[in-house]
Computed example of a mutant assay.
Amino acid sequence: MTDFLNLTGKRALITAGSRGAGAATVGLFRELGVRVLTTARARPDNLPEDLFVEADLTTEEGCRAVADTSRQRLGGVDIIVHMLGGSSAAGGGFSALTDAEWCKELSLNLFPAVRLDRHLVPDMVSRGSGVVIHVTSIQNVLPLPESTTAYAAAKAALSTYSKAMSKEVSPRGVRVVRVSPGWIATESSIDLAERLAKQAGTDLEGGKKIIMDGLGGIPIGRPAEPAEVASLIAFLASERAASITGTEYTIDGGTVPTA
Protein backbone atom coordinates (compact mmCIF):
# COMPACT_ATOMS: atom_id res chain seq x y z
CA MET A 1 0.00 0.00 0.00
CA THR A 2 1.37 3.39 -0.99
CA ASP A 3 2.04 5.79 1.87
CA PHE A 4 -0.40 8.69 1.80
CA LEU A 5 2.41 11.18 2.47
CA ASN A 6 5.84 10.65 1.00
CA LEU A 7 8.48 13.19 1.94
CA THR A 8 11.43 10.80 1.83
CA GLY A 9 14.65 12.50 0.82
CA LYS A 10 13.32 16.05 1.11
CA ARG A 11 15.43 18.65 2.90
CA ALA A 12 13.70 20.95 5.37
CA LEU A 13 14.56 23.92 7.55
CA ILE A 14 12.14 24.25 10.47
CA THR A 15 12.64 27.25 12.74
CA ALA A 16 11.89 27.11 16.49
CA GLY A 17 12.01 23.33 16.50
CA SER A 18 13.06 22.80 20.10
CA ARG A 19 9.61 23.02 21.73
CA GLY A 20 5.88 22.82 21.12
CA ALA A 21 4.50 22.59 17.59
CA GLY A 22 7.97 23.19 16.15
CA ALA A 23 9.38 20.13 17.93
CA ALA A 24 6.34 18.09 16.84
CA THR A 25 6.93 19.13 13.24
CA VAL A 26 10.61 18.22 13.42
CA GLY A 27 9.69 14.80 14.83
CA LEU A 28 7.02 14.08 12.22
CA PHE A 29 9.20 15.21 9.32
CA ARG A 30 11.99 12.91 10.51
CA GLU A 31 9.51 10.01 10.69
CA LEU A 32 8.52 10.79 7.10
CA GLY A 33 12.10 10.54 5.90
CA VAL A 34 12.95 14.23 5.69
CA ARG A 35 16.50 15.47 6.30
CA VAL A 36 15.79 18.17 8.86
CA LEU A 37 17.70 21.13 10.19
CA THR A 38 16.15 23.17 12.97
CA THR A 39 17.17 26.18 14.99
CA ALA A 40 16.63 27.99 18.27
CA ARG A 41 18.72 30.06 20.65
CA ALA A 42 19.79 26.95 22.58
CA ARG A 43 19.86 23.27 21.64
CA PRO A 44 17.66 20.96 23.73
CA ASP A 45 19.14 17.71 25.00
CA ASN A 46 16.82 15.56 22.86
CA LEU A 47 18.04 16.92 19.52
CA PRO A 48 21.23 15.57 17.91
CA GLU A 49 23.84 18.22 17.19
CA ASP A 50 23.83 17.56 13.45
CA LEU A 51 20.13 18.47 13.23
CA PHE A 52 20.52 21.77 15.00
CA VAL A 53 22.06 25.20 14.55
CA GLU A 54 22.13 27.64 17.45
CA ALA A 55 21.19 31.13 16.28
CA ASP A 56 19.25 34.26 17.15
CA LEU A 57 16.87 34.70 14.22
CA THR A 58 15.82 38.16 15.35
CA THR A 59 19.11 39.36 13.81
CA GLU A 60 20.28 39.46 10.22
CA GLU A 61 23.51 37.76 11.29
CA GLY A 62 21.59 34.86 12.83
CA CYS A 63 19.44 34.39 9.72
CA ARG A 64 22.49 34.45 7.45
CA ALA A 65 24.23 31.85 9.63
CA VAL A 66 21.22 29.52 9.47
CA ALA A 67 20.93 29.91 5.69
CA ASP A 68 24.65 29.20 5.26
CA THR A 69 24.45 26.15 7.53
CA SER A 70 21.45 24.85 5.58
CA ARG A 71 23.48 24.92 2.39
CA GLN A 72 26.54 23.37 4.03
CA ARG A 73 24.75 20.49 5.77
CA LEU A 74 21.83 19.83 3.43
CA GLY A 75 23.03 21.26 0.12
CA GLY A 76 20.00 23.56 0.13
CA VAL A 77 16.40 23.15 1.22
CA ASP A 78 13.21 21.92 -0.44
CA ILE A 79 10.89 22.98 2.40
CA ILE A 80 11.02 25.92 4.80
CA VAL A 81 8.67 25.96 7.79
CA HIS A 82 8.67 29.28 9.61
CA MET A 83 7.46 28.28 13.10
CA LEU A 84 9.18 31.04 15.07
CA GLY A 85 6.87 33.44 16.89
CA GLY A 86 5.51 34.61 20.21
CA SER A 87 4.95 37.64 22.37
CA SER A 88 6.49 38.99 25.54
CA ALA A 89 4.65 42.32 25.65
CA ALA A 90 3.03 43.28 28.93
CA GLY A 91 -0.67 44.06 29.26
CA GLY A 92 -2.12 47.53 29.08
CA GLY A 93 -3.39 47.87 25.55
CA PHE A 94 -2.03 49.87 22.63
CA SER A 95 -0.94 52.87 24.69
CA ALA A 96 1.43 50.73 26.77
CA LEU A 97 3.37 49.55 23.71
CA THR A 98 6.61 51.48 23.32
CA ASP A 99 8.65 51.67 20.13
CA ALA A 100 10.98 49.11 21.67
CA GLU A 101 8.09 46.65 22.23
CA TRP A 102 6.87 47.13 18.66
CA CYS A 103 10.35 46.51 17.30
CA LYS A 104 10.73 43.40 19.46
CA GLU A 105 7.46 41.88 18.20
CA LEU A 106 8.27 42.61 14.55
CA SER A 107 11.82 41.30 14.97
CA LEU A 108 10.48 37.98 16.27
CA ASN A 109 7.31 37.46 14.27
CA LEU A 110 7.99 38.99 10.85
CA PHE A 111 11.63 39.67 10.01
CA PRO A 112 13.08 36.15 10.50
CA ALA A 113 10.79 34.80 7.80
CA VAL A 114 11.48 37.73 5.48
CA ARG A 115 15.25 37.36 5.89
CA LEU A 116 15.43 33.59 5.60
CA ASP A 117 13.21 33.64 2.53
CA ARG A 118 15.45 36.26 0.97
CA HIS A 119 18.47 34.01 1.57
CA LEU A 120 16.97 30.64 0.58
CA VAL A 121 13.98 31.00 -1.73
CA PRO A 122 15.96 32.27 -4.76
CA ASP A 123 17.65 28.84 -4.86
CA MET A 124 14.20 27.20 -4.92
CA VAL A 125 13.14 29.47 -7.76
CA SER A 126 16.29 28.58 -9.69
CA ARG A 127 15.47 24.86 -9.32
CA GLY A 128 11.79 25.45 -10.10
CA SER A 129 10.51 23.68 -6.98
CA GLY A 130 10.03 24.20 -3.25
CA VAL A 131 7.52 24.83 -0.50
CA VAL A 132 7.48 27.70 2.00
CA ILE A 133 5.10 27.50 4.96
CA HIS A 134 4.56 30.60 7.09
CA VAL A 135 2.98 29.92 10.47
CA THR A 136 0.82 32.94 11.28
CA SER A 137 -1.93 33.12 13.94
CA ILE A 138 -5.67 33.53 14.21
CA GLN A 139 -4.84 36.76 16.02
CA ASN A 140 -4.24 38.37 12.65
CA VAL A 141 -8.06 38.41 12.40
CA LEU A 142 -8.94 37.97 16.09
CA PRO A 143 -6.51 40.18 18.07
CA LEU A 144 -6.54 40.29 21.87
CA PRO A 145 -6.03 44.02 22.56
CA GLU A 146 -5.07 43.76 26.21
CA SER A 147 -1.61 42.35 25.54
CA THR A 148 -1.03 41.12 21.99
CA THR A 149 -1.80 44.04 19.67
CA ALA A 150 1.77 44.22 18.35
CA TYR A 151 2.02 40.43 18.01
CA ALA A 152 -1.27 40.31 16.10
CA ALA A 153 -0.18 43.15 13.82
CA ALA A 154 3.15 41.42 13.11
CA LYS A 155 1.41 38.17 12.25
CA ALA A 156 -1.01 40.05 9.99
CA ALA A 157 1.99 41.58 8.23
CA LEU A 158 3.50 38.09 7.85
CA SER A 159 0.25 36.86 6.30
CA THR A 160 0.15 39.72 3.78
CA TYR A 161 3.82 39.28 2.95
CA SER A 162 3.25 35.55 2.43
CA LYS A 163 0.36 36.17 0.04
CA ALA A 164 2.39 38.67 -1.98
CA MET A 165 5.34 36.29 -2.13
CA SER A 166 3.11 33.45 -3.34
CA LYS A 167 1.93 35.52 -6.28
CA GLU A 168 5.53 36.20 -7.25
CA VAL A 169 7.10 32.74 -6.94
CA SER A 170 4.25 30.27 -7.51
CA PRO A 171 4.42 30.72 -11.32
CA ARG A 172 8.07 29.69 -11.00
CA GLY A 173 7.42 26.41 -9.18
CA VAL A 174 7.57 27.44 -5.50
CA ARG A 175 4.44 27.06 -3.41
CA VAL A 176 3.85 29.44 -0.47
CA VAL A 177 1.12 28.66 2.08
CA ARG A 178 0.12 29.80 5.55
CA VAL A 179 -0.94 27.85 8.63
CA SER A 180 -2.90 29.87 11.16
CA PRO A 181 -3.15 28.19 14.58
CA GLY A 182 -5.33 29.21 17.47
CA TRP A 183 -4.45 28.10 20.98
CA ILE A 184 -1.99 25.17 20.91
CA ALA A 185 -1.40 23.01 23.99
CA THR A 186 2.33 23.73 24.24
CA GLU A 187 4.51 23.88 27.33
CA SER A 188 4.29 27.66 27.44
CA SER A 189 0.50 27.74 27.08
CA ILE A 190 0.12 25.21 29.89
CA ASP A 191 2.42 27.36 32.03
CA LEU A 192 0.13 30.32 31.27
CA ALA A 193 -2.95 28.29 32.23
CA GLU A 194 -1.30 27.31 35.51
CA ARG A 195 -0.43 30.94 36.30
CA LEU A 196 -3.99 32.06 35.55
CA ALA A 197 -5.37 29.20 37.62
CA LYS A 198 -3.23 30.18 40.59
CA GLN A 199 -4.31 33.81 40.33
CA ALA A 200 -7.97 32.79 40.14
CA GLY A 201 -7.76 30.16 42.87
CA THR A 202 -8.72 27.30 40.58
CA ASP A 203 -7.12 24.21 39.03
CA LEU A 204 -5.43 23.66 35.66
CA GLU A 205 -8.69 22.95 33.88
CA GLY A 206 -10.07 26.17 35.32
CA GLY A 207 -7.01 28.00 33.97
CA LYS A 208 -7.59 26.52 30.53
CA LYS A 209 -11.21 27.66 30.67
CA ILE A 210 -10.04 31.22 31.44
CA ILE A 211 -7.94 31.17 28.25
CA MET A 212 -10.75 29.71 26.16
CA ASP A 213 -13.22 32.27 27.50
CA GLY A 214 -10.75 35.03 26.63
CA LEU A 215 -10.73 33.75 23.05
CA GLY A 216 -14.51 33.78 22.93
CA GLY A 217 -14.68 30.01 23.31
CA ILE A 218 -13.30 27.03 21.38
CA PRO A 219 -16.21 25.00 19.97
CA ILE A 220 -14.38 21.66 20.21
CA GLY A 221 -13.65 22.44 23.86
CA ARG A 222 -9.87 22.15 23.85
CA PRO A 223 -6.71 23.61 22.29
CA ALA A 224 -5.06 21.97 19.30
CA GLU A 225 -2.32 19.46 20.02
CA PRO A 226 1.16 20.17 18.60
CA ALA A 227 0.99 16.90 16.65
CA GLU A 228 -2.20 18.06 14.94
CA VAL A 229 -0.52 21.25 13.76
CA ALA A 230 2.48 19.23 12.57
CA SER A 231 0.21 16.91 10.56
CA LEU A 232 -1.38 19.84 8.73
CA ILE A 233 2.05 21.26 7.93
CA ALA A 234 3.30 17.90 6.64
CA PHE A 235 0.29 17.55 4.33
CA LEU A 236 0.77 21.06 2.92
CA ALA A 237 4.47 20.37 2.34
CA SER A 238 3.73 17.16 0.43
CA GLU A 239 2.88 16.46 -3.20
CA ARG A 240 -0.68 15.73 -2.03
CA ALA A 241 -1.03 19.53 -1.82
CA ALA A 242 0.69 20.24 -5.13
CA SER A 243 -2.00 22.65 -6.36
CA ILE A 244 -2.30 24.55 -3.06
CA THR A 245 -0.53 27.90 -2.86
CA GLY A 246 -1.25 31.42 -1.66
CA THR A 247 -3.87 30.32 0.87
CA GLU A 248 -4.17 30.20 4.66
CA TYR A 249 -5.30 27.15 6.65
CA THR A 250 -6.77 27.78 10.08
CA ILE A 251 -6.41 25.15 12.82
CA ASP A 252 -8.20 26.60 15.85
CA GLY A 253 -10.99 24.23 16.89
CA GLY A 254 -13.52 26.67 15.44
CA THR A 255 -12.41 29.67 17.50
CA VAL A 256 -12.70 32.27 14.74
CA PRO A 257 -16.47 32.85 14.53
CA THR A 258 -16.58 33.64 10.79
CA ALA A 259 -15.77 31.54 7.74
Rank of each mutant, 00 (worst) to 15 (best):
F4V: 10
F4N: 01
L5T: 04
N6H: 12
I14K: 01
I14V: 13
G17V: 01
S18A: 11
A21Y: 11
A23T: 08
G33S: 12
G33T: 13
R35Y: 12
L37R: 00
T38V: 01
D45F: 03
L47A: 01
P48V: 04
P48D: 05
L51C: 00
L57E: 01
G62I: 13
G62C: 10
Q72F: 11
G75K: 03
G75Q: 04
D78Q: 00
I80Q: 01
G86T: 10
S88K: 11
A89I: 06
G91R: 13
L97V: 13
D99M: 08
D99L: 10
A100L: 04
C103L: 08
L106T: 00
F111R: 09
P112V: 05
H119E: 13
V125D: 03
R127Q: 11
G128S: 07
G130K: 00
T136G: 02
I138M: 08
Q139W: 07
N140R: 07
V141C: 04
P143W: 15
L144C: 09
P145D: 11
A152I: 10
A152K: 08
A156T: 05
A157Y: 05
A157Q: 06
L158F: 02
M165Q: 14
S166G: 05
V169P: 04
P171F: 07
V179L: 10
T186R: 05
E187Y: 07
S189F: 06
D191T: 13
L192S: 07
A197G: 15
K198R: 15
K198I: 15
T202R: 11
G206Q: 11
I210S: 07
G214M: 09
L215D: 09
G216A: 11
R222A: 11
P223T: 15
E225Y: 14
A227K: 15
A227C: 08
A230S: 06
A234K: 02
F235P: 07
F235E: 11
A237V: 04
S238E: 08
E239A: 12
Y249R: 11
G254C: 04
